[in-house]
């Protein structure tokens, strides 16, 4: 059975066909993104690591937290790149990565809350951390958003959220190697909150922009 309208549409689509360059496979794009972010991280973090980094690296909790952050970031980035290809999405893995990321964020605040500090010094020390977290996250998050935009994501908000979460977790991880403050409230408000906000904004941006391929 060949419906006339559908047959007309097939004819129209075939006659207006233009060559397209297929987007790279997620594995290849992932390798490229990881390499670029590694260079970016080494260049930015290399000269300004926290003064107590060497002793902190002997702490099991700190190492576990960094390992969880790295795993979550890589899995989320891979999921964001896969979300650009219909049928290749990895939402379950993205869900597990979210869980790992949330656990790592919670671990970062496990040092306990100091509720005695004055609000002005809390903000004076914290605001630059929040700004740095956001700035360090923008490039990796934007890269993944653009990569998703170049594909055909079927779930734009979810793809945006996963791309944003990967980028902001990477920013958080870099700040974890730079900021010497481990106090829980500082970590939650000035480090983890920007990750949550960035992920939410990315989901909104994804919902607005990543469905555009349907109207091109």
């Amino acid at each position: 059975m060949r419906d006339t309208d559908t047959a007309d549409l097939v004819d129209s689509l075939a006659s207006s066909l233009t060559p397209v360059r297929p987007i790279w496979a997620p594995g290849r794009r992932m390798a490229f993104w990881s390499l670029a972010q590694l260079v970016f991280a080494v260049a930015l973090v290399g000269g300004s690591t926290r003064p107590d980094l060497a002793p902190r690296l002997h702490s099991t909790a700190y190492l576990l937290e960094l390992a969880l952050l790295a795993c979550a970031t890589l899995l989320l980035a891979r999921s964001a790149l896969a979300a650009a290809i219909p049928g290749a999405e990895r939402w379950r893995i993205a869900g597990l990565a979210f869980l790992a990321g949330t656990t790592a964020l919670a671990l970062s605040g496990a040092a306990g809350f100091d509720t005695t500090q004055a609000i002005d010094s809390f903000a004076r020390i914290g605001v630059p951390c929040a700004v740095h977290t956001i700035l360090l996250s923008l490039l990796p998050a934007a890269w993944l958003m653009v990569a998703a935009y170049r594909g055909a994501p079927l779930h734009p908000a979810r793809a945006g959220m996963v791309a944003g979460a990967a980028g902001f977790l990477l920013g958080f991880t870099m700040m974890r190697l730079m900021c010497p403050v481990d106090e829980g409230l500082h970590m939650m408000v000035w480090h983890a909150l920007p990750v949550a906000l960035g992920t939410t904004v990315s989901a909104g941006a994804g919902a607005l922009a990543l469905g555009a391929w349907r109207h091109r």
Partner: peptide
Amino acid sequence: VLLSVHRGRHSYDPGR
């Protein structure tokens, strides 16, 4: 579906 296939044809990975 056919229109979406057409608009998203660049996202098909020839290796899959």
